[in-house]
Design a protein around this nucleic acid. Structure first.
Lengths: 192, 192, 192, 192
DNA sequence: TATGAATGAGTCTTCATTCAT
DNA sequence: AATGAATGAAGACTCATTCAT
């Protein structure tokens, strides 16, 4: 019963994701999605009433996948410096893979909504922040890291990350160099 | 012709700017602009053929206003630390005044264009970067600043600035605290 | 088959009746009826192929309920004036209860059909007319009523009744006063 | 300037009137009107935003034409009986020309609006009523008419008129006979 | 220069109707 | 009998763009 319907919804989300990545949020029409999903007009409206609903659903699904892998490793007693490097490397590589980014779509989607506390990006920010802060606390505990203002350093990391990600999608940056340099600085702020 | 025509064009840009700030780039239509500028359809098309042309013109005008005030002061031999604080303060206050931001409009406008080197944002980035780098060099010269990777620190500043600016327009952030913390860290990286 | 099927059909008619009263005929869709009757699309189509069929069925059912109670009473030799008053009172109260009226639905339904002699409203008109005419004849016979053009007086009653009913559903009328006055006049035309 | 625009609006109203007469209010679409008026979609929307606006405009125009011609004649001292006959004759002929009636359109249009006192039909009712009442008063004054409840008789006339008009548009009535009879009765109620 | 009427294309949205299950 | 997924057609509405005046 729900079977077939759910499969179609999933197919719709999958097809839409591609479109949102390519064109941002505003330029994706219900018609685009029909075509991409191989569905008729009415068929699409059976499952979703607007691009906003689809996008919101995609985000929800998306966010559930992001879980702090860091915590587990701290519990295993690994070196904080090692974990930091691993994390920074991951950030750097993500900074560079700007393709496939939902940046514009997110920006457009949320700019059309009232600022609200159950904003998915906000939740994601808080989650990332908490995770990074606890890593730094762990490093300080182990004596590997300097005493720093954890929150400030984490913000610096997260926001500069966003900045590069967003700007490099609209202007040609030598992002490899840029991100390497930035990350080296941040590392230097932390590691003794 | 010039006279009156130029006045009308200026009025059009002024009216459009407001719209771009409020709705971003994609959602502003020629019709909106007609109404905002108090012009008829035909009248608007006399001067501009598309919203893109208007936006490009606005940016050009905009960019010409931004001039490096820093350089002059360096020449007067002022303390680098003083100049840095002044600059950081300005950045902080701009981080906070996210209202009136053209962020979304820029993003939308440039995401619809091929990545190109005569991108106004790119130019602006290079100009700011050069200006900040020379300030740091000046500080190092005077012995006030540590030896740092100038470019990296400047990028950190610029991109985290962009990050906060953009994100705080779509999610509710305690931006006052955030920006203060971040700027304090950056200052600490530089000043001996 | 009959059993359950007939129960469903009855449920459909019941749910539809409400909708027709609220929205007239044209604005009621098969989808509305599905929802109101708690049936699936396919389920509804099992029983009725269109709103017209449902409405026609409702009318048939409806009309069967209307039977001339007057005749019986005349046979019992009751006073014609008494019967007339009883009838007029009933008409007046119905004039006032314009809510729940199917007026618009009838109008819309029949205006979409060719004028035909097996029109349910027409049958109803003839039945009412015959019944009222025989009452008047009875009154004349008993010497209680004046010699009048029976048909004309009956028409006056029936059509003015319809007029008030229909118009008061679309414009705010002081229908209590209006109907009382009208009915008093009609009574005066008849009773010696 | 307004010249051409006003001409188009008039043409739109003219074309629409025909459609409203033929199909009532609800079944007339903006598309129908485009085609009937020989206009493009956008062209129509330039002048009217909905069928409701067009219909309202038509009614306004219409209502302005209806002016009490009766009053003038009373002032000339003509016989009340003569004026009454003239009026009744006019009503009768209008009862019969049910074609071209906006009955259904009116009904549908107003049934979709909240009952309101600035309802055009209501205004028209009050105007007609006042006009007829003063005619009767005039007749009573001149000793030609009986003492009657003016309002009640007028209501009887107006509502039975509406009733015939509306019902004869949806069921086959011998309206010639019916209206003649009804009008004769009403005349008899008045004239001594 | 400027007006505003007009066009035509494109998107949104809702339904009646069908059909595999 | 009944479900609900799917189709396709129809109508609403908005714009970019052109053009006669």
């Amino acid at each position: 019963m729900g079977q077939k319907g759910e499969a179609t919804k999933t197919a719709i989300r999958k097809a839409s994701l591609l479109l949102f990545v390519q064109k941002g949020f505003k330029d994706v029409t219900m018609k685009d999605i029909c075509e991409a999903a191989g569905l008729s007009r009415g068929g699409l409206y059976m499952h979703y009433g607007s691009t906003g609903q689809i996008f919101a659903d995609i985000i929800d699904e998306w966010m559930e996948d992001l879980e702090n892998e860091v915590t587990g490793k701290m519990e295993k007693g690994l070196s904080a410096t090692f974990l930091l490097d691993e994390l920074l490397e991951r950030y750097q590589s993500e900074m560079l893979d700007r393709s496939g980014s939902l940046g514009l779509a997110f920006y457009e989607y949320y700019s059309g909504m009232p600022l609200s506390d159950d904003n998915a990006m906000l939740k994601q920010y808080h989650r990332s922040k908490a995770s990074l802060c606890s890593l730094i606390a762990y490093g300080i505990d182990k004596g590997e890291f300097k005493q720093v203002n954890k929150e400030a350093v984490v913000d610096l990391l997260l926001f500069s990350y966003q900045g590069v990600r967003m700007l490099s999608s609209i202007m040609p940056l030598d992002d490899d160099n840029i991100s390497k340099g930035m990350i080296r600085e941040i590392r230097a702020m932390l590691v003794k």
